[in-house]
Amino acid sequence: MSELLDWISQPWPWYVAGPLIALVMFSMLFFGKSFGLSANLRTMCSILGAGKSCDFFDFNWRDQMWNLVFAAGLVLGGVISHLYLGYEPAANISETTITELQAFGIENPGENVVPIEIFNWENLLTVQGFLMIVVGGFLVGFGTRYAGGCTSGHAISGLSDLQPASLLAVVGFFIGGLVMTYFILPYLLVL
């Protein structure tokens, strides 16, 4: 048992994670549901009463309960890996990435799961923190609904079903991601 625990406590390689993600998608389909996390954001709007001011959120959110429970499972999975599966926050990122981010003033790139000098409560009140945390989150929520899905809905489910719309959405994800990473983050990270 402890050997098994040691074994799964190591970082998982991509060829283990990828097929498992496909299995998760299949499980959801098998149970008659869809695999897509961003729909939960819309459901949360509905729960908060957004249906009163906007018909887009006027639906019975209880029908979407299964997806919120799925999201709760994600939180639980995070807790379990963090507490029991030898979670070493350090990601084995490349030397190039480390050097590059150090030049932007990030002290220990990869050491934590997020750059802690940016993603913390105090930093929320700075221009950098506000942009990266609040504006960043806003763009994720706005963009994912505009595009009709996120990484799980488009990049995994949609591409697996060979849907052209999803391929286009993934191209969009990369346009935005590349513009941000190459042209904007270099300024944001040193603010």
């Binding site: 942009l131 990266m132 945390i133 504006v135 960043g136 989150g137 806003f138 763009l139 994720v140 929520g141 706005f142 963009g143 994912t144 609904r145 505009y146 595009a147 009709g148 996120c150 990484t151 488009h154 719309a165 999803s166 286009l168 959405a169 993934v170 191209v171 969009g172 994800f173 990369f174 346009i175 935005g176 991601g177 590349l178 513009v179 941000m180 990473t181 904007i184 983050l185 944001l188």
Partner: peptide, 16 residues
Amino acid sequence: RYIIGGSIFGLGWAMT
């Protein structure tokens, strides 16, 4: 929808 919406999502994904 997919190019504009997707790009907006991508900007936020790379930030957060």
